[in-house]
Design a protein around this nucleic acid. Structure first.
Length: 714
DNA sequence: CACCGCGTTGTTTTT
DNA sequence: CAACGCGGTG
């Protein structure tokens, strides 16, 4: 009964769940029961007969979120979730393109390029066009292409005002031609292609419009322009677009997310006002007050204030360490203490701005014998040995896949070197054929022997794989290609890589294809689309380490937000404009709202970065937390400059609490007998052996040894 | 063709 | 402090 379904919802949640068949924007704060609202609404729509399961279209950003939604739904109502279209934008577009590959102008076996593959393809293209990657950095080209695809622009619709721009457009066009020839599709292409498929094909579009009367979108603040256009296309004028998001948690603008889509949605669909979910079920009051105060510093918000029925709870703890090592040791000690108090390590997280920061933490954790687990970094299907094995499989499925061929034509080494490959590329460009065709057509000579052997190898593999199961095929590819033998030779990393290859065989064995005859194609697709969620946790209770980005959507009893220093968090590359700074602040907001009971903020007065010591000042975000909510924990630095809460509430001007080194501080103006006026920008050393880096007005950057240099404050 | 060593260069990340 | 890319040598 629907009464069961709706039981326990608060009034706002209830309003959102039972919203009539119209478009809506739900502004869902952190910990306000967003996923519950989304899934309950789907269940309610089905239960009240407003749609059939096949009429559900629900879009998420990660596969994990999609799976969670499916799991919760099948727990709520007896329904086959496979009939529903619940998935990521890319997953759903893939589904669409597979079903209508002819209309979309794609081969049935089209494969998906992940970002790595795309970059490799672009590098290859630049090389074949003899463009220096200094003038055309591959990453810049990649960014240009993806940015334009996400704006819905094909190369032929672009115009340039200068030579450089013109070249980029040409590159874009040539890249697309290359992808078409090879039968591959990048991530942005999945979206753009399915957008074009629907907008060019009235009947098809109408079919889906009448099917998906209710479209639900999660994490709407993270959608880009093309994704919003795609949603609008499917919604047409009659369907209800139900979007859930939080502008304060928009942390992916750097890769094209448009928070502005939230305002656009209100305008485009004549939605009077957003439904606000502001009651928080996660964090203690003090933590929420801190989060609210912090995010208040941003402009142009849709506006929202989190509150809770729970009490204030504990104070927020702030610790300013001497060094990054000291900071890490502090965290280790506190984690150990919390564990003694009965908290599981897995209910505690250490968050940081960038991955490089995990090193110092890991070092201290190993020394302190605290088990930990680092999230992020290399994912399963991105590992090189896995990529190599997949490349052989892709060649079996489609020998025209130049990317795959180049990856493994000489791996393991079989006497086909760079010069030979260059020759092949020249031949393929000249003859307008794929590399595989060029390999097959190579003439006589010594080189041709090794090339002919390679053709024989791949063809033999394909023949032998006939009638085999997917797992057997994967295993065969690993063995026959010589990959296994190659890694068996490798003393250093071979063992782990072999284990991963075996894991790949296991994954293939567990893979269930929709269409058995396409099992290999489907397996390769899912490898690209789900680069591999982090593997199932080993049983051990471990402290969780991850970037703030990776922590979005998660929650922990205790959270350490570390490295709160200007230049690190907020990151220095974001300090140039207000937009960048505001995104950093939202990142901080995400970090703070991960904590249920206890929140630590930590920073260090000295930090190793890029092999150099830096002496940063405390992050402005620390100062944006009201002092009354914070308990400053004593440290050695506290005695040097007593950090009385009142003292660090003198915002907005950041106080200089930099460590002194040799009587000088970073940022200080100094005067040198010979070089004149300058500013201290960096320092290293200790005791009497101190060196300062100084930017002199007249003489530029210099390192000076304090023992010899005659330096005085200016 | 393969390997070694030097110099450069460093965000965040899902699909 | 790393990881990666390039250029030179065996």
């Amino acid at each position: 009964m629907s009464s069961d379904l709706l039981a326990g919802l608060n009034p706002e949640q209830l309003r959102a769940v039972t919203w009539p068949a119209q478009s809506a924007l739900v502004l869902a704060g952190a910990g306000s029961g967003k996923t519950r609202v989304l899934t309950t609404r789907i269940a309610w729509l089905i239960q009240t007969g407003q749609i059939s399961p096949a009429g559900v279209l629900a879009v998420t950003f990660t596969n994990k979120a999609a799976r969670e939604m499916q799991a919760r739904l099948s727990a709520m109502i007896p329904v086959n979730v496979r009939t529903m279209w619940i998935g990521t934008f890319h997953g759903l577009c893939n589904r669409l393109l597979r079903m209508h590959y002819r209309d979309a102008g794609l081969p049935q076996t089209f494969q998906i390029l992940d970002s790595q593959d795309q970059l490799a393809a672009i590098k290859r293209l630049l090389k074949s066009l003899e463009l220096s990657d200094e003038k055309f950095p591959p990453r810049t080209v990649q960014h240009f292409i993806n940015g334009n695809k996400e704006a819905g622009n094909r190369a032929d619709r672009l115009t340039a005002h200068d030579y450089y721009g013109q070249k980029l457009i040409e590159l874009y066009a040539t890249y697309d031609a290359q992808c078409r020839r090879e039968g591959v599709v990048d991530f942005a292409e999945l979206l753009l292609r399915s957008y074009e498929l629907l907008s060019a094909n009235q009947a098809l579009c109408q079919h889906y419009r009448s099917r998906f009367r209710f479209i639900l979108v999660d994490e709407f603040q993270d959608t880009n322009r093309l994704q919003y256009a795609w949603l609008r296309l499917l919604a047409g004028t009659d369907n209800a677009l139900f979007a859930v998001g939080d502008d304060d948690q928009s942390i992916y603008a750097f890769r094209g997310a448009e928070v502005g889509n939230m305002r656009s949605l209100l305008r485009d669909y004549g939605i009077g006002d957003a439904i606000r979910l502001e009651q928080n079920y996660r964090s203690a009051g003090t933590i929420l007050k801190a989060a609210n105060a912090l995010i208040e510093h941003n402009d142009g918000r849709l506006g929202k204030n989190l509150w809770t029925e729970a009490g204030d709870g504990e104070e927020i703890r702030f610790y300013e360490a001497w060094s990054d090592g000291d900071e890490a040791e502090f965290i280790v000690d506190e984690a150990r203490a919390l564990k003694r108090e009965g908290l599981n390590l897995s209910d505690m997280a250490v968050l940081y701005r960038s991955n490089a920061q995990s090193r110092a933490l890991e070092h201290a954790l190993v020394n302190g014998r605290i088990p930990y687990r680092v999230y992020g970094g290399l994912r399963f299907f991105e590992r090189q040995e896995i990529k190599h094995a997949l490349a052989y499989l892709r060649l079996l499925a489609n020998p025209e896949d130049d990317n795959a061929l180049l990856r493994v034509i000489n791996l393991p080494a079989r006497g086909i070197g760079a010069r030979t490959v260059e020759g092949l590329q020249a031949a393929s460009a000249e003859g307008g054929m794929s590399l595989w065709q060029a390999v097959c057509g190579a003439g006589g000579g010594k080189r041709a022997t090794s090339l002919a052997k390679f053709v024989l190898l791949i063809d033999a593999m394909r023949e032998r794989s006939e009638g085999l199961t997917l797992a057997e095929t994967v295993s065969l590819a690993i063995d026959d290609s010589g990959l296994r033998a190659m890694y068996e030779q490798d003393k250093k990393e071979g063992e782990e890589r072999l284990a991963n290859l075996d894991e790949l065989i296991n994954a293939a064995a567990a893979f269930v294809a929709d269409e058995p005859s396409l099992a290999l194609i489907e397996f390769l697709t899912s490898a690209a689309l789900e680069a591999g969620e982090h593997q199932a946790e080993a049983g051990e209770d471990a402290l969780q380490l991850m970037t703030v980005h990776a922590a979005k959507g998660l929650e922990f009893d205790a959270v350490f937000v570390s490295g709160l220093e200007e230049g690190l968090f907020p990151h220095e590359n974001s300090l140039n404009d207000d937009k960048g700074l505001e995104e950093e602040r939202r990142l901080m907001y995400v970090a703070v709202t991960r904590a249920r009971k206890r929140l630590y903020l930590t920073c260090a007065q000295a930090r190793m970065l890029h092999g150099q010591s830096r002496y940063p000042i405390r992050s402005r975000f620390v100062d944006e937390v009201p002092a009354a909510l914070v308990k400053v924990l004593s440290s050695q630095s506290a005695s040097a400059s007593p950090a009385a809460p009142a003292a660090w509430q003198s915002a907005p001007a950041p106080r200089r609490s930099t460590a002194e080194i040799g009587g000088f501080r970073i940022g200080q103006s100094v005067c040198h007998a010979k070089f004149g006026l300058g500013v201290v920008v960096n320092a290293e050393g200790a005791g009497s052996d101190v060196r300062l880096q100084i930017n002199f007005a007249e003489h530029g950057m210099k390192w000076l040894d304090l023992r010899y240099a005659k330096l005085q404050p200016a």
